[in-house]
């Protein structure tokens, strides 16, 4: 068993997905061990409390388990795929929730939450996170705020425009510029965008 576990640890995400598609629960467990923390961190950031984050992550990984065949490598990495499911399901839940936790106070508080974590076990992921944080801190605050309101809190562009009392065109423009600047950050350093 130990040997099998070691083998799973050395497999690429795409191989684990293929094995999980055949019903290999251990391969799926290895995927969870690799990406569960990132998924949970995103879920917690979006949902704002532990039980909701746990429910979301369980829901997402069950979907991953049942729909491994829908993963398309050409559309991005396995991690990106899993996190996009967390994001989409999280937005659905936030929007359908009667008690939307989205007050201006929480939004402003959340803007200060993105501090570097002290404990990263994988050096490469640590580096990627640092790069991403650098890229995000290079954005003007008004652009970053709009990206975070949309991505983490599930606001639509119309709601953001009302919330911040900005013309809708300005909100769209800041979204466009924000994403452009993130790309420019990596391009200017000849770095690949982390996936």
């Amino acid at each position: 068993m130990a040997k099998r576990t070691r083998n799973y640890l050395t497999l690429a995400d795409e191989d684990l997905i293929s094995l999980a598609e055949t019903g290999d629960a251990e391969a799926f467990a290895a995927l969870y061990d690799r990406h569960g923390r990132a998924a949970y961190s995103l879920a917690y950031r979006m949902m704002g409390e532990k039980q909701a984050a746990e429910d979301l992550v369980q829901d997402v990984f069950l979907k991953v388990w049942r729909l491994t065949g829908s993963y398309r490598a050409e559309r991005g990495s396995v991690r990106t795929w899993i996190l996009s499911i967390v994001h989409n399901r999280g937005i659905d839940q936030i929007r359908s929730s009667a008690s939307r936790r989205r007050t201006q106070d929480k939004i402003e508080a959340s803007a200060t939450k993105s501090q570097p974590s002290e404990a990263f076990s994988e050096a490469w992921r640590n580096t990627q996170r640092d790069q991403v944080r650098d890229a995000l801190t290079s954005l003007p605050p008004e652009q970053l705020k709009i990206l975070e309101l949309a991505y983490f809190s599930g606001y639509t562009h119309i709601e953001i425009s009302e919330l911040l009392d900005l013309p809708l065109g300005t909100v769209k423009g800041r979204m466009r510029l924000g994403l452009k600047k993130i790309k420019a950050y990596f391009d200017s350093r000849n770095m690949a965008v982390p996936g």
Partner: peptide, 19 residues
Amino acid sequence: GLAGLLALSTHEMEPPPHL
């Protein structure tokens, strides 16, 4: 992919073992 980078900027948290 660019938008998804925001997911990597979160404060990293360990999921509970019972999950």
